[in-house]
Every structure is written in structure tokens, then in C-alpha cells.
Design a protein around this nucleic acid. Structure first.
Lengths: 132, 132
DNA sequence: TAAAAACCTATTGACATAGTAGGTAAAAGG
DNA sequence: CCTTTTACCTACTATGTCAATAGGTTTTTA
């Protein structure tokens, strides 16, 4: 299941795309519009900056903004960054120990096929597709 | 992510389909073949019996067996039974509180579309498709 | 220089995961 | 009948993740 980290991140991205004024948007405003705790969003947004989705600016007049055009972001990269992986099973997660049963496993191809479906779905959606 | 409950359940089903002798298969044998703790499998298999996937028989000569033909099971029903839901987000899980923001939510259609994809994928696979 | 904002570290309660432990009940074989 | 084999049952536990909260410090602009 996709957790609040991934879901809130997508909503922050949409919010920034829809409320783009050219200048920085304070997190307070995003939190108020989205009805999400500002304190919790701080943690999420910090990782989004570290992952290159957003840029932040401290001080008065500061806040956050997108660092690319909405059509240059895929939903897949947002979710994958925030959730750590899009993989459906632990054996296929990036950084997982290779499973000793992988060669004989009769279920691995199933999970791999589903993972490809998932990957193609989310990387095929652009942020701009979700902006009204 | 699909947990061991769902993954092990699918493996038990495949194991039973492949080693079908007409009589009951002891869990000890399944656990040994699959390399999974028998004690842990007990918990999982118990729920599979309760959910109507398997029938169990106590006593000497007892064990478990499928109660339908392999082509009459979908992978979707196995996973959904064991994981509680196939939903990708909490707001769409069966039994979830309806989200007050659902009407205005710009991400809900995305999750709903993905859920449909997931549902169609797993309900489109039959147990017999995974048996060698 | 004061306000507004990001940025930082730490903590918490609740729950899920992946098991382990130690039994009781049932059924068949000898 | 009795022993073995098997399912079935309740309880416990260690670890980790999730979704926040709390209380600061630093940076920047007006």
C-alpha cells in the first residue's frame, strides 16, 4: 500500500503546480489548503527537496516551488522517491538481498510481471495529467 | 507490498496443485519443500481453510488439499483473502472510512485506476497458470 | 531588528510483520 | 486399546514502520 508519504507528496506537487505564482509558496499555505499537518509535511517536503523534486528557500518570502515544469515530472518518480521502491514484493525491492530460491521460484515471474505493470503505469503518468 | 502471508499462501496453493496425490498432504511436507517454518505456515493455512481455499483433515493420514480444481482459483482471491485487501491506498480499502475529501481529491482517480489495473491483473491469473 | 520561513533532532503511540512456544483434539494404524 | 501422526488453538515477542508531535536553530527579507 502507498503510504501518506507518497500520497501527500503527490498532493504537494499538484498544489504547487496549481498555485504557481512564480515565487516561493510557504508550506503553511500548502498545509492549510490540503488539510495536512504542517509539521508532518515538513518531514516529507524535506525528502522531496533532497530528492530533487522541489527547491526550498528559507526566510521571509521563502517557501517551496517546483524546479521543473509539471509535464517534466512523472508520478512514478515521486512515489518511488518517497516510498523507497515501487516493488510489490520484498524480493524485487531495490537493495534487497538476492533470494536463494529465485531460480526455482514459481511465483517470482508473477511478481515481476506485476511490477512491470506498476512501473509502466506510474511512470506513464505525468504531474501535468493530474492538474485541473 | 505483498507480505509473506499472501506470498506463502500462493506457494502453498501451487505446492498442493503440483503434489496432488488425491489424498491429504501433511503441512510438514509442504513446509520442507518450500523452506518455510511449519509453525508459521500453520497460522497462514488456518486462514486459508477458514476462507474456503483448502480443506484440512486431522489425524494420521491427514493434512491439507485443494477443494477445487487449480483452474477454478484466481490468484486475486488468494491474495485478497490473505492480505485483507488488494487496495493500493487506505482510502480505497474495503471497510475504510469514507474520506471527506473524496469529492475534491485530485489523486483519488489515479489510485482508483491503479486499483482496477491491479484487480484485473490478479483476478485474471488462475492458479493453474502458475503450475509447471 | 523583528518577523517569517525553512531546517534540524528527537520522541511517541499504535499497529503490523514474521515469526516462536507450548499445548489440545482428532483420527488412523497396529 | 493405545500410540503415533496430524491438524488445530491460544498466547507471546522482537522488530520495524507509520503518522505524527514537540521544541528548537538558522536563514533571509522587509
Amino acid at each position: 500500500m502507498i503510504s501518506t508519504r507518497g500520497r501527500y507528496a503527490v498532493r504537494v506537487m499538484i498544489d504547487l503546480a496549481e498555485n504557481n505564482t512564480g515565487s516561493y509558496i510557504p508550506l503553511k499555505d500548502i498545509a492549510a489548503r490540503q488539510g495536512i499537518s504542517k509539521k508532518y509535511l515538513e518531514i516529507i517536503v524535506k525528502d522531496m527537496v533532497a530528492g530533487g523534486l522541489l527547491t526550498g528557500a528559507s526566510g521571509k518570502g521563502g517557501g517551496y516551488r517546483l524546479c521543473r515544469e509539471p509535464e517534466e515530472y512523472t508520478i512514478g518518480e515521486i512515489i518511488e522517491l518517497m516510498e523507497g521502491s515501487l516493488a510489490s514484493v520484498a524480493c524485487l525491492a531495490s537493495g534487497a538481498m538476492p533470494c536463494p530460491r529465485a531460480d526455482a521460484c514459481e511465483t517470482l515471474p508473477l511478481w515481476a510481471e506485476y511490477d512491470k505493470l506498476t512501473h509502466d503505469f506510474f511512470y506513464g503518468k505525468k504531474l501535468s495529467d493530474l492538474v485541473r
